[in-house]
């Protein structure tokens, strides 16, 4: 139920006055219209985590790389 999946922002739509901000988001080939209203500084090309049609937050690329690097070191593998 709290499942949320990563997707890449392909384009931002022009939102009419008062309507929530929407984006086209790519989920490994499946493209959907997603509400990005809660991410004021979202940019094309960034990754977001999406739940029931809403982007909950951006995925922080730097944190992700650091975590993976640490994990690999922990696992003593490359």
């Amino acid at each position: 139920m709290c499942l949320a999946v990563p997707g890449k922002v392909l384009s931002l739509e022009e939102a009419p006055e008062g309507e929530p901000k929407m984006a086209r988001v790519d989920f490994a080939g499946v493209v959907k219209n997603i509400c990005v209203d809660w991410l004021p500084d979202i940019q094309v090309g960034e990754y977001v985590i999406v739940h029931v049609g809403f982007a909950l937050n951006k995925i922080d690329e730097k944190e992700a790389l650091e975590t993976l690097q640490l994990l690999r070191e922990m696992g003593d593998i490359n």
């Binding site: 809660w38 991410l39 909950l56 937050n57 995925i59 922080d60 944190e63 975590t67």
Partner: peptide, 16 residues
Amino acid sequence: YRRVVRREGNPAAKSV
């Protein structure tokens, strides 16, 4: 889950 979770969460979503 640092790549997604920030200490304050998402303030805009919380306020809605």
